[in-house]
Amino acid sequence: MKLIGIEEHTLTAEVRDAWNAIDLASADPSVSIHSGGIERRLLDLADERIALMDETGLDVQVLSLTTPALHDLGVESVGLAKRANDMVAEAIARRPDRLEALATLPVAMPDEAALELERCVLSLGFKGAVLCGRVGHRNLDHPDLRPMFESAAALGVPLLLHPRTPAPEVRAAYYSGFSAEIDAAFSMFGLGWHYDAGIQFLRLVLSGTFDRLPGLQVILGHWGEVVLFYAERLAVLDRFSGLEHPVATYLRRNLYVTASGMFSPEYLARAAAIVGADRLLFSTDYPYQYRPGCDARRFLADCGLDEADRTAFAHGNWLRLTERGGGPTISGSRITDHR
């Protein structure tokens, strides 16, 4: 059974150097975790990556730039994004049987980001794009950022909403008071990352993004970034939201959910109950969740799904989601059908 991991990360030396040039680590502690063996595996797009895929049992990795991506960079991010995407495209050309990609976008420049997404999908064959939460002080539902979402909807490709570290003032209020190491971990992979990503998705819902763009599809990792476990409470918002549909509709119509290496049958069952088994995607969250001897196929075999749903989880849902690419696209004020 073909096994495709759709949240598998990369980094380029140029992006790392751009983070260091603005001392981003002082504002976002996630920059500091990209070191040692983690950094080596992020930078590698060849032998070690493929060998560890074989060890884990993963047939295909869908590559995406790791958090915080280019969200804290300005006009220089346009060139950085293009070069990062071209580098990944070259790696895919060497191993098209093992690698796919989500585009890196210069998100601080939304019009340019929309065009780069179009280039990556139509010229490079990428499957969508990754966004890492806030752009500066703007949440993803900010009107300035709409061109990226409009482009994704017109292209018919998904956006992975990846976690990023909460804003410094949020960390100070909720994730501080221990040692520097505990504060940082608490605000990132301990919990803060996941609340932040889930909130970004809910802001898209509550802002009416999916009413304006009903075909837009987004992906949340880590079994829905906490959101799915509070679906009953979120339903209370229906009384106040003024949206066209209940929140539950957007969870089943516009959201896909992936494992991100959290190999829990219980979490899988909860996600399937909320979004449907046809919206579950596999991923290992490489290299962060890589552990020697960790067997993705063992989890797949024991996950509790029947054969048809297990096949869909392993690869079928991803193939169905991404076969939409190559549809109408936005270019300036024009919509062009490339099919």
Results as ranks from 00 to 15, higher is better:
Met1Ala: 10
Lys2Glu: 14
Leu3Val: 10
Ile4Pro: 06
Ile4Cys: 02
Ile6Tyr: 02
Ile6Gly: 11
His9Glu: 01
His9Cys: 08
His9Trp: 01
Thr12Gly: 07
Ala13Pro: 09
Val15Ala: 08
Asp17Lys: 11
Asp28Pro: 05
Ser32Phe: 03
His34Ile: 11
Gly36Leu: 05
Ile38Asp: 05
Arg40Asn: 11
Leu45Arg: 12
Asp47Trp: 01
Glu48Ser: 14
Val60His: 12
Val60Arg: 12
Gln61Ser: 13
Ser64Tyr: 07
Leu65Arg: 01
Asp72Lys: 03
Asp72Cys: 05
Asp72Val: 00
Leu73Met: 07
Gly74Ile: 01
Glu76Val: 00
Glu76Gly: 11
Ser77Thr: 06
Leu80Glu: 01
Ala81His: 02
Lys82Met: 09
Arg83Gln: 10
Asp86Gly: 14
Ala91His: 06
Arg98Leu: 03
Arg98Gly: 08
Leu102Gln: 09
Leu102Asn: 06
Ala103Thr: 09
Thr104Phe: 04
Thr104Arg: 01
Leu105Met: 12
Met109Thr: 14
Ala114Ser: 14
Leu115Tyr: 09
Glu116Lys: 04
Glu116His: 01
Glu118Met: 11
Lys127Thr: 13
Gly128Cys: 08
Val130Ser: 15
His137Asn: 13
His142Tyr: 04
Asp144Gly: 03
Arg146Gly: 07
Met148Asp: 14
Met148Gln: 14
Phe149Asp: 14
Ser151Gly: 15
Ala152Phe: 02
Leu161Lys: 05
Ala167Arg: 15
Pro168Phe: 03
Val170Gly: 05
Arg171Thr: 13
Arg171Met: 12
Ala172Cys: 02
Ala172Val: 03
Gly177Asp: 06
Ala184Cys: 03
Ser187Leu: 07
Met188His: 10
Trp193Val: 14
Asp196Ala: 14
Val205Trp: 03
Thr209Pro: 03
Thr209Lys: 05
Arg212Glu: 15
Val218Asp: 07
His222Cys: 07
Trp223Ile: 02
Glu225Arg: 06
Val226Leu: 03
Leu228Ala: 09
Leu228Tyr: 10
Tyr230Cys: 08
Arg233Thr: 00
Val236Ile: 04
Asp238Ala: 03
Arg239Glu: 14
Gly242Val: 01
Ala248Arg: 14
Thr249Trp: 15
Tyr250Gln: 09
Arg253Gly: 13
Val257Ala: 08
Ala259Gly: 09
Ala259Thr: 15
Gly261Phe: 06
Phe263Gly: 09
Arg270Pro: 00
Asp278Gly: 11
Leu281Glu: 07
Ser283Glu: 05
Thr284Asp: 10
Tyr288Phe: 15
Ala296Asp: 00
Ala296Gly: 08
Leu300Trp: 09
Ala308Glu: 13
Arg310Lys: 07
Thr311His: 14
Ala314Ile: 06
Trp318Ala: 12
Thr322His: 10
Gly327Met: 02
Thr329Tyr: 14
Arg334Lys: 09
Thr336Arg: 12
